[in-house]
Amino acid sequence: MKLTAENIQFIDNYLKNSEVIYYDIRMEMLDHVATAVEQKMQSENLDFYDAFKSYMVVNKREILKGNKLWPGFSKDIISNFLKFLFQPIMILIGVLRGVYHKRGHYEMVEKTGLYWHFVDLVWVFVFTFFYLV
């Protein structure tokens, strides 16, 4: 059973609304979904909308996986960030800053800045573990 031009347009709009903005990516996804839906219509004897719905319920997440505009935090990103923080040069800078701090050379602005960035850093973790998970 072949899909009509309207069916194809329907899937295309659906993908567009799911923020698949790049034409070439959408074109490929569209063909994938259309072929799968055709297959489902044939094997389970469904009409287009039922087949499309039941296909999307199962596969939507997987299909749109590579399409996230903002990838979020992955284990890789966090571990790379930690590696970056604990490079020898960064530790050296940290120690130098500590020494500087002990001598009491900080201005009020700098202290405010430090506090501000500390809160920022805390939010990085709060956001990761409480919002993204």
Binding site: K2, L3, E28, L30
Partner: peptide
């Protein structure tokens, strides 16, 4: 290669 197959393009 992109080809037109049943109302849609196939890669």
């Amino acid at each position: 290669e992109v080809e037109k197959v049943d109302n849609r393009l196939r890669k």
